[in-house]
Simulated scan of single mutants.
Amino acid sequence: MTDTDADDVLISAADLAVALDGDHPPIVLDIRWVAGKTDRDAHLAGHIPAAFFLDLDADLAAPPGIGGRHPLPAPADLQAVWRRAGIDDRSSVVVYDNRDSSVAARAWWLLRWSGLTDVRVLDGGFAAWVDGGSRPVESGPGPAPVPGSVTVVPGGMPTVDADRARVITLGGGTLLDARARERYRGELEPLDPIAGHIPGAVNLPLTDLLVPDGTFRTPAEIAATFDEVLGPEDAGGSGEVAASCGSGVTACHLILAAARVGRSISLYPGSYSGWLALGRPVSVGAGVPGA
């Protein structure tokens, strides 16, 4: 576990509304991204009041290359992004996406990796905020926030590289793959040049951790899902665990869910696209039993 309690990784729309009306409202970041591209238009059409929009591709990733499609940003670049959003070292931050936290989790992870601890994801995203029509929504770009002074200290969340990911799969640990089952099995691949998965990886689609409205399942249900894949943690689990996906974005969703129930999971930032960029072999099909 990291410093923030497990229950604090998520915040409901109702609780966020209360916090925004308080004396010390959190900084709110809009990370909407759909169909493989940033969704700034959705932000301009309507967003949570005072939310600051960040572009997943430009702000929360380095340029594509040997590190995959969404490599981790350089700490100095990330510090500039957080300061532009008005973040200080002691800021409380809430991040949201459209509805399923699959992209907001990347911002949550990067903020935690940067050394910030008071960071939460809006459970159910913007869809939860507008549900019922009673909460305020703003349109347009909004005023720029007062620049922040946060200092990024990288390393607040654990990572593994390609070599370590391979060691994990060979050494009794588990490399989780958060992608849809069809992509994991190599039946389709809309983004990367070769379909399949990292040899030895185990499929745990992020959708298995959600209910149909895009909010997370109960902690007991999430814990049971991880226990089914990894083994009960109090019985030793299955050794070291890391998460991957296509490019290191939605893998953070598994890490967020795991943090909610007290499990610690490392991120393989390059994930499948980084694995391919290194020319590593791939597997297709169902993989290990249960995948």
Score class of each variant (00 low, 15 high):
Pro141Thr: 07
Ala105Ile: 01
Asp123Gly: 06
Pro141Ile: 09
Pro141Arg: 03
Ile87Met: 01
Ala107His: 11
Ser92Trp: 00
Leu116Phe: 08
Arg120Phe: 04
Ala107Asp: 04
Asp123Gln: 10
Leu111Ile: 00
Gly124Val: 09
Asp118Asn: 14
Asp97Phe: 07
Trp108Arg: 14
Val137Arg: 06
Gly124Cys: 14
Trp113Cys: 01
Trp108Cys: 13
Leu110Tyr: 05
Ala127Pro: 02
Phe126Gln: 12
Arg120Trp: 02
Trp113His: 05
Val94Trp: 03
Arg106Asp: 12
Arg106Gln: 12
Trp113Thr: 02
Val93Ala: 07
Gly124Asp: 10
Gly133Thr: 07
Asp118Cys: 08
Val103Gly: 10
Asp89Val: 06
Gly132Pro: 07
Val121Ser: 00
Asp100Leu: 11
Trp113Phe: 05
Leu111Asp: 02
Ser92Ala: 14
Val95Ile: 15
Val119Thr: 11
Glu138Ile: 01
Ser91Val: 03
Val94Pro: 01
Ala104Ile: 02
Arg99Ser: 15
Ala105Thr: 06
Gly125Phe: 08
Val137Ala: 03
Ser139Pro: 02
Ala105Val: 10
Asp97His: 05
Asn98Pro: 04
Trp109Lys: 11
Trp129Gln: 10
Val93Pro: 01
Arg99Trp: 04
Trp129Tyr: 13
Arg135Gly: 09
Ala127Asp: 13
Asp118Trp: 04
Tyr96Gln: 05
Leu111Asn: 08
Val93Arg: 00
Val94Gln: 01
Ser102Lys: 06
Ala105His: 08
Asp97Ser: 12
Ser91Gln: 00
Trp109Ile: 14
Val119Phe: 09
Gly124Ser: 09
Trp113Gln: 04
Val93Lys: 00
Gly140Asp: 05
Leu111Pro: 03
Trp129Pro: 13
Val94Ser: 02
Ala128Asn: 05
Gly115Gln: 06
Leu116Gln: 01
Val137Tyr: 07
Gly125Asp: 07
Asp100Lys: 02
Gly132Tyr: 07
Pro136Glu: 08
Trp113Tyr: 00
Asp89Leu: 06
Ala107Phe: 08
Trp129Phe: 13
Arg90His: 14
